[in-house]
Every structure is written in structure tokens, then in C-alpha cells.
Simulated scan of single mutants.
Amino acid sequence: MGDWTFGRLDAARVWRGLADAPVNYSLDEVCRPAWNIDTYRTVLPRERPGPPEPHGCWEHACRLVRDYEFSPPEIVRALYDPTAPLLGRDMLLEARFHGMHFYCGVRVTDVVDETRAGTDRVWGWAYETLEGHLERGKVTYEVVKKQDTGEVLFVVSCHSQGAPSLDRITSLGWRLFGRRTQLRFYRRCSDRLQHFVRAALVGEHAPPGPPPMVEDLVCAPSDAKVHRLDALALHRVAPGSVTRRPAGPP
């Protein structure tokens, strides 16, 4: 299947080009109302009070979050090197948006592995948008076990805005549909993680099957389907760049 995973794009070449791309915003820019600042919490199956249980909800959820399996493939897919350390990992995201596929880079800039307030066991990671991304901002995905009660949560926190350098057509599409698609993405992430965790707890392999590959890179999530009709979509690489790169071969 190879390159068909990402339509007609030479995705591995575009992914390699992310290495020199900088983060496209600074934290001191982030404030309402120009930025969306959101937090979403999803309740996962409860464990017994105490540390995370071996092969329990928290561990399964951490695995799924680590591998980006919670992402709904009809909205966002990711390409990354599974052998690279999580911290500093570059990911090429394919945002699928009303017959348009946008290819945007992010970088993992934080990994969380700590106990907060003496009771909350937290693991997760965050990525920030790179130059050329459709958006600017940061998303943090965390799995939290409240060890005093056994409650397990999936927490997504983010700050974001559309990139100001989008061309007129892309900017109009973002204003009309971007926020709606963003909120649908977070709802679908929650639904998928709940579903896969419940399946894993009863011994099912969730999600089923090995992930698609592009050369030595993993395409996540593993249940992303390959459709040749994807090649008919409008493909845009780095839509937030002042000078956008072509989608075809070099």
C-alpha cells in the first residue's frame, strides 16, 4: 500500500522535511479571545483505588495514547518514526477536511510522567504545531488515575488558533468549518479511547491489526483505511506557509 496511505503524496519525503521546521508560535501570544483555550475530560473504566493496575484501564489507555490510536482516521492521521524517542518526535499529520487533505507538522515537546497532589498518577505527552501548520498551538493528551478513588480520566487540554498566513480560500474554510471540525475531533477521540480500552479489558486486540506503513514510518491510527479515491482529494502541504510546498514528487 505504501504511498497510498497518504493519497498521492510522497509522505516520507514531507515528513523528513519537518526536522528543520520551527514551532510556529510563542506562548506569550496565547490569550482569549483570539485563541481557543479548551479542556476536555473523558471518564474511562474505573480501577480499584491505589496505583494503576497491571493490564488495567490506565495502562491500556496510556498505550493507546502513546501510539496515537485514539485519533479518528476520518479526521486526522499521523505519520511518525516508531523508533524515535517520544520526546522530540516529529509527526506529519494529515487533516482530512471536506474533500481536502492538509499535511501539517507537529513536534512532541513535552512528556508527562508524574504524580500530582500526592494522589493523581499522570502520564501523557504534548505536541506543538510547526511552521506551515494549518493552526498554531499546543495539545496535551494525559491519562490520569485518581489513586484515592480509582477513577481514570482521559484529559485533553489545548490552546489554538488558525494560522494567520492561510490563503484566502483556506482561511475562509477554516472560519466556516475549522472550529466545528476541531470539536468533533475531540469528541471522536474520547469515544474511540473509551471503546478501545473497554475492548482491551476483555482481551480483545484494540485496535485490530498492525498499523499501515510508509517506508519505515508508522501511519496511525492502526485502523486507518486506505482508499484510492483519496488521491482525488485536494492535497495541500504546509497550508500555513507563506510559500507552500507542492504536494507532488520533487
Rank of each mutant, 00 (worst) to 15 (best):
E204M: 12
L229K: 11
A200G: 02
R228I: 09
V226Q: 05
R198I: 00
G203C: 08
P239W: 06
L217C: 11
R228S: 11
L234K: 14
F196H: 10
L234N: 07
D223F: 13
V218Q: 12
L217S: 09
L201A: 02
V214R: 06
A224V: 06
G203L: 06
C219N: 11
D216V: 00
P208L: 09
A238I: 00
D230M: 04
P208Y: 02
A220N: 07
C189M: 11
H195M: 12
D223Q: 09
R184Q: 14
V197A: 02
G203T: 09
A233Q: 10
L232P: 00
L232T: 11
V202M: 05
D223W: 15
E215R: 15
L193Y: 02
P212M: 04
T181W: 03
V237S: 04
Q182C: 05
L234F: 04
A224R: 05
S241L: 07
G240L: 08
L217A: 07
Q194C: 12
Q182V: 00
D223L: 04
P208G: 05
P211L: 04
A238P: 00
P208H: 09
A220Q: 06
S222Q: 06
L193A: 03
S222K: 13
R179S: 12
D223N: 14
L229T: 13
V218N: 02
S190N: 05
A206C: 09
R180F: 08
V242W: 05
V226W: 03
C219E: 11
F177G: 03
P211R: 13
V197L: 03
D216M: 01
G178S: 04
D216L: 01
T181A: 14
R184A: 14
P207S: 09
D216Y: 03
S222D: 07
S190L: 00
F177H: 07
P208F: 02
V214N: 08
C219H: 05
Y186V: 11
A231Q: 13
S222H: 08
P210C: 02
L183C: 03
R198L: 03
F185L: 15
A220H: 07
Q182T: 11
E215A: 15
R179N: 12
F196K: 01
L234R: 15
H227A: 09
A220D: 06
A231T: 14
L229D: 13
A231D: 05
A224F: 01
A199Y: 00
R192W: 01
F196D: 11
P207T: 06
